[in-house]
């Protein structure tokens, strides 16, 4: 390969690299899974590298906005999947959510993070999180904004 060709390849390489580095990837992988595992282990003594069972963690901020709580509580109360583990963060902003919490506890094992420990870990929490784990790996992740609540419901009810 002569020198001119080498320079040409270098120029092409220069053209391609910035497009990759500046573009915004829109994938659904959970890039904070390591942080989430660390959170589960530190806060609830649950080690996902040991426990290989299939589980779906649904992380809900109890002091989130009213519409967010309303939509998410509605789908959680309807779902019948045994593998769901709700993780409730903080304290409810309104007493009327107490009945909802009681209902969740009747259906599933609920993990409660009353002291908002999750904010001291890199989990990407800002909206409710749906984290589907199998064999210690995350096979599906969704940050459940209000507009995605139905999508989350469809995913969970289809399992």
């Amino acid at each position: 390969m002569n020198r001119q060709k080498l320079i040409l390849i270098f120029v092409i390489f220069l053209v391609i690299i910035p497009f990759y580095s500046c573009s915004h990837k829109n994938d659904t992988r959970y890039k904070y899974f390591e942080g989430f595992k660390f959170y589960l282990k530190s806060t609830f003594k649950m080690d996902l590298s040991v426990n290989k069972d299939e589980k779906i963690y649904y992380v809900l901020l109890l002091d989130g906005c009213e519409p967010c709580m309303k939509y998410n509580s509605e789908i959680l109360l309807e779902l019948k999947n045994d593998n769901i583990i709700p993780i409730l963060i903080g304290k409810p902003s309104n007493d009327r959510w107490n009945d909802f919490i009681k209902s969740l506890k009747k259906k599933w094992t609920v993990l409660e993070d009353v002291n908002n420990e999750i904010f001291f870990y890199e989990t990407g929490i800002s909206k409710p999180l749906l984290i589907h784990v199998e064999n210690g790996k995350c096979i599906f992740f969704m940050s459940v904004s209000d507009s995605k609540v139905n999508e989350a419901y469809n995913y969970l009810s289809g399992l």
Binding site: Q4, I7, L8, F10, V11, L14, P18, C22
Partner: peptide, 19 residues
Amino acid sequence: MRKILFKLIAVFFILTSCN
């Protein structure tokens, strides 16, 4: 040829720098 390529590279760096 080399000069042109060098200029191209320089211009390219300026145009494609990420914000």
